[in-house]
């Protein structure tokens, strides 16, 4: 039921991408954005109010993305909903065939556009994954109440930041998520390839890359301004190592974007060669239209390209 699961199981190098929901109430606007990625990536993540900024809900955006012809991965964060709402929304998502679900704790409200909001954080990413696996495999809610029928075919995802302190604990933290139920895992921006390799190596040594597909997060630093912002410490979880900063600041300010794309293409080539890496996750930060260019540069666009959007469902349109 999950094309993403099938693709990863086949062992083919897999490309996923972020697709940020629109700040607005129109499915058409969402589909327009989704079409930019059609044919280029294997699945897209519909973020859940990323950075604590209000956007269209991830389930509605995921439906729009699917109607535009993409394979959706619906993100759910624990920031805004308690265990009652999270489980209920998971059942709702399953009921409309959303099987790729990705769980994260979520950015703190103070970073968003409603800094005065009440933080919820009832479950964390590990207990949420655990709960989802219990719902699917045991057919029970966290309370033990039976589900009739249980959500079936769920493919559970997680995220990890291999570069944040305590670095020695990050592989163990990923292992906890895999034990809890994660079947695929996307990472934060990979700039420091050596540190990433250590992290993947630790998971590989425990045989965990067999149980969970690892997708390395890759993004393009598009300009000097973007670099300043990303290295300011104001973006939760994002840090740009000094050697990358030196390289990007060493070129003409007008060609930072080009150098950033080159750097991303190099990272993709390096992680692609690492055993235990199933694919890449493109962190587009709202610039979906740059994805094709990046894939071409990295030399992994082979066979991919724009495709015609699926014909609108006549029955649905007539209703």
């Amino acid at each position: 039921m999950s094309a993403l699961r099938d693709r990863l199981a086949s062992g083919a190098f897999t490309i996923t991408s972020e697709l940020s929901p629109v700040r607005g109430g129109s499915a058409e606007a969402m589909k327009e954005r989704a079409r930019l990625l059609l044919g280029w990536v294997d699945a897209v993540n519909l973020t859940d109010n990323q950075g604590a900024h209000v956007r269209m809900s991830s389930w509605a955006s995921a439906i729009a993305a699917r109607e535009a012809g993409l394979e959706p991965i619906m993100q759910m964060t624990c920031r805004d909903r308690n265990r009652i709402a999270l489980q209920s929304d998971l059942l709702g998502a399953a009921s409309v065939g959303m099987t790729n679900l990705l769980f994260m704790t979520g950015d703190y409200p103070k970073f968003g556009d409603h800094p005065g909001a009440k933080p919820v954080f009832d479950l964390d990413s590990v207990t949420m994954l655990w709960t989802a696996r219990k719902m699917r495999d045991e057919g029970k809610l966290l309370s033990g109440n039976e589900l009739k029928p249980p959500p079936s075919g769920l493919f559970l995802g997680a995220v990890e930041n291999p570069f944040a302190p305590p670095e020695e604990f990050r592989a163990a933290r990923a292992a906890k998520k895999i034990a809890a139920g994660a079947q695929f895992m996307q990472t934060q921006y990979v700039f420091d390839v050596a540190a990433f390799e250590r992290w993947v190596g630790a998971l590989r040594d425990e045989g965990l890359t067999q149980r969970c597909s690892i997708l390395a997060g890759v993004g393009v630093v598009r300009s000097l301004r973007a670099l300043d912002f990303m290295s300011s410490g104001k973006v939760p979880g994002v840090s740009v190592p000094d050697f990358v900063q030196r390289r990007l600041r060493g070129v003409h300010p007008d060609s930072v974007g080009q150098e950033g794309a080159k750097l991303a293409a190099e990272v993709i080539a390096q992680v692609k060669a690492m055993p235990g890496v199933a694919g890449v996750h493109l962190l587009t930060a709202g610039y979906e239209k740059k994805v094709p260019e990046l894939l071409e540069m990295a030399g992994i666009a082979g066979g991919r390209g724009p495709v015609e959007a699926p014909a609108p469902d006549v029955a649905a349109a007539g209703a």
Partner: peptide, 27 residues
């Protein structure tokens, strides 16, 4: 922990080990 995480640190820990929400304190 501002997120009351009981299963380990979030991904937002600063390079020096600072809490993402209260940067003057350690995670």
């Amino acid at each position: 922990c501002p997120k009351e995480l009981r299963n380990g640190p979030c991904g937002g820990v600063g390079p020096g080990g600072a809490c993402e929400v209260y940067p003057d304190r350690r995670c």
